[in-house]
Design a protein around this nucleic acid. Structure first.
Length: 599
RNA sequence: GCCCCUAUAGCUCAACCGGAUAGAGCAUCAGAUUUCUAAUCUGACGGUUACAGGUUCGAGUCCUGUUGGGGGUACCA
């Protein structure tokens, strides 16, 4: 079924042409949902037409409204209030909307495939020196949801993860382990691999601070002390040895990364994340150096007398940027250049989304500009999905200081709370224990994912441990609960009225306001999905699902389904229920959230 | 110093391209269950949209300035 807003815009543009001989592109006409407290479904804003001197507003409104009623054939009434032309569509039209959605293969929940589009979404991209924390979770959920939304919107999408598995930070945990662990392993210590490595990263920092303090006490400047501290010197030396391929360093590096990967795999599995492909900076950094060579040849980069390589971006409003160190080792951006090329070889994408925190806004601007100057065909399609930091009530999370909310701990905590809340409500009777475990996990994950995804990505957000594990109000749990209630009705209907869902749909002559509100909301799904995909913004989907649940809850409270007044009405309301459930299920699936049928 | 992001109810968040009387949730208070799951629903309370100007028929939204918060800023990632 054709989307209604473009349809109204078309008809209005045609009417303006025939009535006043005014040519306006349909998309320029402002058509929106009628504001609450006003009667109507859609509103055309007429103020902008004033400049065309068509006459007085009341007359324009009347004539345009009449013309639309005529040409659209679905306008029950129209009314001009100030400069707003409010259209109320017929109940028959809204009934058709439901019929059309229910009858469409796929129930009108996804958008048709788009040809010539290839998108790669990179997210997670963890460092291999510490476990995943709350901040990573926002990244991961955003990336996975964005990819799922783009797929549903018809875009060929792949998901990739880049491991930041080399660098001085990795050497720090390696060095600390070598120095202080006395051969301890995750197995011998009974610690999950990523936590185990993280422990040594923290240990490095502790010892390093001690050294710095000591040097300062001996009268050294703090800045100098940070550079001169033996541990830092050694970490840097270890990094040079790594780049030089020193076998013992490589062996240790492999061992420790392996520990991290096995730990992270468990966490990824628990939050149901999987990637199409993994990239490793340890593989791509040399490609980056080739790109530097290429850029030197083509004159995009210049080499300084000391050997370092630079690019001057001042004419693009950016700064001069180092792309290769004096000692010939690569920096972050060098590796990104290599990774980008490799990814293009693999996917020939025309668009790439990088899910990275907003502290790297500048870095990503630089990356795109360099790719442009190198003439990369995919440069224009590079998009930085930048998101704000997750703060705690106590302030910022700092992994070195141990003030992070660990992902595994958080998931356990959420699980416990979900279990307690469910048991307290006494809803566990008669459920099989194995299903209960799955249910608690589903509720825990749903609450967490929803909490992190409902906020507009660029905004910094606060994670309040008390509130986030609340299962009331604007939460993923509420939406899951709505879905479960609908399925309660559908289950009972399957017994009492086994053929009802397949019966021919008879649209009631008049709809209840709550029925109409629901159908109208259902009809908003496609535009919402399209907007979310276009803006890479899962929060639009999250908020939509909430609004739909809210509409449904009101309906559920007031309108009987199984005890509907007539058999036709029962069929109609049942199919309405089913479509709401399907929409919620798909919408939440795009956010990575499962929907229980009972809870 | 310069650049970028941000500021909406006590708290956490909405508000599509600039459109009508800025909406939810939490918290507080008052109600609703012999009726499909009360993890629900209804109502009340709560706002100079940080501040000052400007553009516009119309500004939370755009522009300028100020203030608060955050981030970045040439050899960390």
């Amino acid at each position: 079924m054709e989307l209604i807003i473009p349809r109204i815009q078309q008809a209005a543009a045609a009417a303006l042409k025939s009535l006043w001989n005014l040519d306006l592109p349909p998309a320029e006409l402002v058509v929106q949902h009628t504001a609450r407290d006003h009667t109507g479904d859609y509103t055309i804003v007429l103020f902008p037409l004033m400049k065309h001197k068509l006459g007085a507003l009341p007359e324009i409104g009347q004539r345009l409204g009449d013309a639309l009623a005529q040409s659209l054939g679905i306008v029950a009434r129209h009314e001009l209030v100030k400069g707003f032309l409010n259209l109320t569509l017929t109940d028959a039209y809204w009934g058709e909307v439901l019929r059309s959605l229910s009858a469409t293969p796929g129930h009108g929940l996804t958008l048709p495939p788009r040809t010539g589009e290839k998108l790669v979404v990179e997210y997670a991209s963890p460092n291999t020196n510490k476990p995943i924390h709350l901040g990573h979770l926002r990244n991961i959920f955003l990336g996975a949801a964005t990819a799922a939304i783009c797929k549903a919107a018809g875009i060929d999408t792949s998901e990739v993860c880049l491991f930041n598995d080399k660098g001085i930070h990795v050497c720090k945990s390696m060095l600390a382990w070598q120095r202080f662990a006395h051969g301890e392993t995750p197995e011998s210590a009974s610690i999950k691999g990523d936590h185990f490595v993280g422990k040594w990263y923290v240990r490095f920092d502790t010892e390093y601070r001690r050294e710095v303090q000591q040097l300062v006490d001996e009268g050294m400047e703090e800045e100098t002390a940070r550079q001169q501290a033996p541990l830092m010197q050694e970490a840097q030396e270890m990094y040079r040895q790594w780049e030089a391929g020193q076998p013992e360093v490589l062996a240790l590096w492999q061992q420790m990364n392996q520990w991290v990967y096995s730990g992270m795999e468990q966490t990824y599995a628990r939050i149901h994340i999987r990637f199409d492909k993994y990239y490793y900076e340890s593989d791509t950094w040399k490609l980056g150096r080739q790109v530097v060579d290429e850029g030197l040849e083509s004159g995009v980069f210049t080499r300084q007398p000391d050997g370092s390589v630079w690019i001057d971006l001042t004419d693009a409003g950016l700064d001069r940027k180092l792309v290769l160190r004096r000692d010939g080792t690569s920096v972050y951006i060098t590796q990104d250049l290599g990774t980008a090329d490799l990814r293009y070889q693999d996917y020939q994408m025309n668009r790439s989304v990088y899910v990275i925190g907003n502290e790297q806004d500048y870095h990503m601007q630089v990356l795109r500009e360099i790719l442009r100057r190198l003439g990369r065909p995919y440069a224009e399609g590079v998009y930085h999905l930048s998101y704000g930091m997750v703060d705690l009530p106590s302030g910022k999370m700092k992994s070195r200081e141990g003030t992070v909310v660990d992902a595994d701990d958080l998931l356990d905590e959420m699980y416990r709370t979900a279990k307690e809340a469910t048991e307290e409500l006494g809803k566990t009777e008669g459920m099989d224990p194995a299903n209960l475990t799955t249910l608690y996990e589903t509720l825990a994950l749903g609450a967490l994912k929803y909490y992190l995804l409902k906020v507009d990505p660029p905004k910094r957000m606060l994670f309040n441990p008390q509130e986030s594990i609340d299962f009331k109000g604007h939460t993923g749990t509420f939406i899951q609960y709505t879905h479960a209630r609908i399925h309660g009705i559908l289950r009972k209907a399957a017994e009492s009225h086994p053929r009802a869902l397949e019966s021919t749909l008879v649209i009631p002559a008049t709809l209840l306001p709550l029925e109409k509100a629901l159908i109208q909301r259902l009809s908003d799904w496609q535009p919402t999905l399209a907007d979310a995909a276009a803006g890479y913004d899962p929060s639009l989907v999250a908020n939509y699902c909430y609004e739909l649940s809210k509409d449904y809850s009101r309906f559920h409270y007031e309108v009987p389904v199984l005890k509907a007044e007539t058999p036709e009405l029962l069929v109609f309301r049942l199919q309405l229920n089913a479509q709401v459930a399907r929409t919620l299920r798909l919408g939440m699936a795009l956010l990575g959230i499962d929907m229980p049928e009972r809870m």
